[in-house]
């Protein structure tokens, strides 16, 4: 028979589980406090737009390309679609921005020309250019993950700011500010 030498695990090892558990509780407490961020933000802020060319989405507005964006003037790039309900909600705000002299350019995602025409007739057309993107390519290029999203682009074609979701009435001033900042 082997002798019955009582082998006691070292003291610190016995408290280790409690310490680890304490760390877990601290971690999830922190996690519960933090505001839940659900959106995926673009990592392209401060980086230039990639090269792209989009055909015109409607007859009465030209299409959109990188060269149009880097023409020296800051712009608001609005990614929208006629089938997207929040896009209709933000239309008055876009009109307001237009009225304040902001150059708003649009990209219509996965849209049919007739639907788009009807949408612009009903909700107004604040866009100086509208490019058509049927495979969300421009979204992947700028790090956008849904519609509507708006990007402030400076005169050199660099992305300055990303706005996720529709622009609310109380956010118009903030957007104007961002575009003015990009123009300096």
């Amino acid at each position: 028979m082997s002798e019955q030498k009582p082998s006691v695990p070292s003291r610190w090892a016995l408290w280790l589980p409690l310490v680890l558990f304490g760390a877990f509780v601290a971690l999830v407490l922190y996690g519960l406090q933090r505001p839940a961020e659900r959106e995926v933000r673009s990592a392209m802020i401060g980086k230039p737009l990639p090269q792209f060319v989009l055909r015109a989405a409607v007859d009465d507005r030209p299409g959109l390309s990188f060269a149009d964006m880097a023409d020296g003037k800051p712009k608001l790039l609005n990614i929208f679609a006629s089938w997207c309900i929040p896009c209709a909600v933000e239309a008055p705000q876009l009109a307001q921005l237009r009225a304040q002299g902001i150059d708003v350019v649009g990209v219509a995602i996965r849209d049919k020309p007739d639907d788009l025409k009807a949408f612009l007739q009903r909700h107004g057309n604040p866009f100086s250019r509208i490019g058509a993107d049927d495979v969300s390519a421009i979204q992947f290029a700028v790090g956008s993950s849904g519609v509507p999203e708006s990007f402030v682009i400076d005169g050199k074609g660099t992305i300055r700011y990303q706005h996720i979701g529709e622009i609310r009435a109380d956010q118009v001033e903030m957007i104007v500010q961002k575009v003015r900042e990009a123009g300096q």
Partner: peptide
């Protein structure tokens, strides 16, 4: 649930830390 978890498991692990030394292998 976190509070329940902390109380139950924390208490059990504390008992473990206090008593396990007297439990031989």
């Amino acid at each position: 649930i976190l509070a329940l978890l902390a109380i139950n498991i924390g208490a059990a692990l504390a008992v473990f830390g206090l008593r396990a030394a007297s439990v031989t292998e």
